[in-house]
Structure formats: C-alpha cells, structure tokens
Amino acid sequence: MSTINDFKGEKPTWCPGCGDYGVLNALQRASVELGMDPEDMVVVSGIGCSGKLSAYFGSYGLHTIHGRSLPTAQGVKVANRDLTVIAAGGDGDGYGIGMGHFIHAMRRNVNITYIVMDNHIYGLTTGQTSPTSDTGFVTKTAPKGAVEHPVHPLQLALASGASFVAQGFSGDIPQLSMLMKEAISHKGFSLLNVFSPCVTFNKQNTYEFYKSHIVKLTDDATYDPTSKAQALLRVSQEDAIYTGIIYKEDRPTYEEMAPNFSETGLATQDHSLSADELEKLLVQFQ
C-alpha cells in the first residue's frame, strides 16, 4: 500500500497559504485512499503556479506549455489506457489560452480527470486579470476594474457534454479529496473546478469569502447530480457558490467509442506487421 509520502515530489515553492497546497494535499490523500501506485499515475500540468503540481506530486509528471495540458493528457491516456491521467492547471491556463481544448476535451470524453485551480487571477505573472475575474475586479491589467464578464466554467462544462462536473474548495480538504476520488473513479472526462485562493494577488476571493458564500451540495439530500436540469439551475444561480458533485452521467468514453481501439497500452506491444499484412494493404493501390 502506498502512503502519502510515496506521492510527495519536489518541495513546493508556492507562497505560504496558497490554495494550491490544499489541492496537492487532497490529491495525495485521494490517491492513497484509492490504493493507487505512483508509477501508474501521470499528472500533466500547464503553465502557472498551478502547473507546478506535476513536479510537487510524486508520480510521473509532464509539465507542458501554457494552455495545452488537456490535449497532451488525452494523448497520454490514448497511448496507455492503464494509466490514471490527471490534467491540472489554473483558470488562465484552462479557461483563457486553453479554452478551445477545454470545450473539445469534454465532448470527446477521454477518461481523464481535469483539476483546475481557480484563483480568479494570474498569479505567477504577478497579478493580472484572469478569465474568471469578476467584473469590476481591479488588477494590474484592469486598474479601473475588469470590464468583461467572467467565464463560467461549470455552465460551459454542462453545455459541452462533460460527463462529470464537480466543484471544490482548497480550504475544505475532506470534501476536496472526496471529490478527487469521485472524479478519478469516474469513467470519462471529469472536471473538478477548485477555488484555490491566491493569498498574494487576490484580496477579494479569499478563504473567508468562500467560507461565507459556499453552499455544499453534499449537504442537500434533495439534490440529484444525475439531473442535468437541476445542475444547470444551480450553476446559473448567482447568489450562492456550490461545491460538490454538480453532475455526472454514465457515457461511453472516447477510447471505448473509437472503432476497434486497443484496450491495452500501446507502449509495449510489438507493432511490426508481417510482409503478408503489408502486401494486403497495398492491394488497393494496384
């Protein structure tokens, strides 16, 4: 059995109090509780403070380029379905520069988990407006307040065919690790949006802010996460921020739908074709 120590990578350099510590912690706990082995996991991250997760988590790690963790993670999973593949990034990485991939990954439904550390700000570049920054939010790039409407990732996810949509808060590790276990166990693309406060550059979306605004769907016995209608209703309400499993459905994955696609990892198979097989393939060119 693996322990938390087995999932420790490089010592983190995030600011003290950064929400991303909570994400790392919850992912380590979830991995232990799921009985995972570090060598069977790959964390594929983007660029930003959140992108450092691949180095700080003690599995195989692939730190890609800005906004492209999703296509890369899908490639890893397609090559080897036995791996547990987790894509990770921030709101700028996933909902700004990588938005196109976000939408298409959800409709494609490759069996990976996508953790977004959403802090409503660009942290690593020291405090610029992000796609999820609230209208009016003052930053270096919006000194008079952001004029654009924020992206709503959960609404987009539901509209784009995500088969698992959840939201967590890095100030609530027990719930967050439970959500990670559910997301990783879900067959298909799982989105886990995590409010992960930036204590250095965002003085508005703080731990206190979330603690006073979050409504936990896990506490609501009447909520049915298999109902898309209920999910759409909740995520479009503006007076509350919901955490928990917003929506889940059982849908075949891309790997299952791709005709005759290999069920075992491609890395170690012998892919050479016999002269006979090659000859047959050439008949169409005669």
Binding site: K77, V78, G100, A267
Partner: peptide
Amino acid sequence: VQTEDEIAALNMTIGAAYGGA
C-alpha cells in the same frame, strides 16, 4: 483523433509519444 486545431494535434502527439506509442 481529429483534434480541434493543430495546436492540440501536436500536443496530443507529444502526449501519446510520451505515453509510449
């Protein structure tokens, strides 16, 4: 995999190659 654009195409190719294909 027919990707959403060429950026995704090469990044996914990199992921698949890293994965061993």
